[in-house]
């Protein structure tokens, strides 16, 4: 049996009419930019509706959002605002996605001599405390911790 987790965040209470009024200025605007989006699978193929009762390929965010949609430039192939950034531009420079993947050190990164406090040089990461010499700790983030 699994727990049904309590969702802590509920409808925002109006703690202050002033705050609410100010917040309204940044309310999220509905847009038609994201209508009629053709779903694509991981190989970039547009997904065709299967026969009744059959499954179809799961859609890929990467292919669906970062390409073209019926000839219209979308994320990564557009020159408009933030849409010019590609999936790779975002994914590889994003701490929520990288989680230490771009901070890999080595199989045994803990080193009592790695950091010089007087010159502030070297690698300060785990020079002392923590699981020294444990080969599953290869980066500061989640990836590389096993």
């Amino acid at each position: 049996m699994q727990h049904s987790r309590k969702k802590v965040v509920k409808a925002a209470a109006v703690s202050s009419a002033v705050l609410l009024g100010l917040a309204a200025g940044s309310a999220l605007a509905a847009t038609t930019d994201h209508n009629n989006i053709i779903l694509k699978d991981w190989q970039g193929q547009e997904i065709t509706r299967p026969a009744a009762g059959l499954a179809a390929p799961a859609y890929s965010v990467k292919q669906t959002c970062f390409g073209t949609n019926n000839g219209t430039a979308c994320h990564g192939s557009s020159s408009v605002g933030n849409a010019k950034y590609s999936y790779d531009d975002i994914e590889r420079h994003n701490y929520h996605a990288q989680l230490g993947a771009n901070e890999f050190k080595g199989y045994n990164p803990a080193n009592p001599d790695a950091y010089n406090p007087y010159t502030n040089t070297g690698d300060k990461w785990r020079p002392g405390a923590g699981p020294q010499g444990k080969n599953w700790v290869q980066s500061a983030g989640h990836f590389g911790s096993w």
Binding site: H3, R5, K6, V9, L28, N35, I38, I47, R49
Partner: peptide, 29 residues
């Protein structure tokens, strides 16, 4: 015969708090 979605009303340029909270604030997370 191609599948498409209309997400114009549900996509937000700026994430809503409920999206953040699903991972960061829900009980036991």
């Amino acid at each position: 015969g191609k599948l498409f979605v209309d997400l114009g009303l549900s996509l937000n340029k700026k994430p809503q708090s409920s999206n953040c909270a699903a991972c960061h604030q829900s009980e036991y997370n």
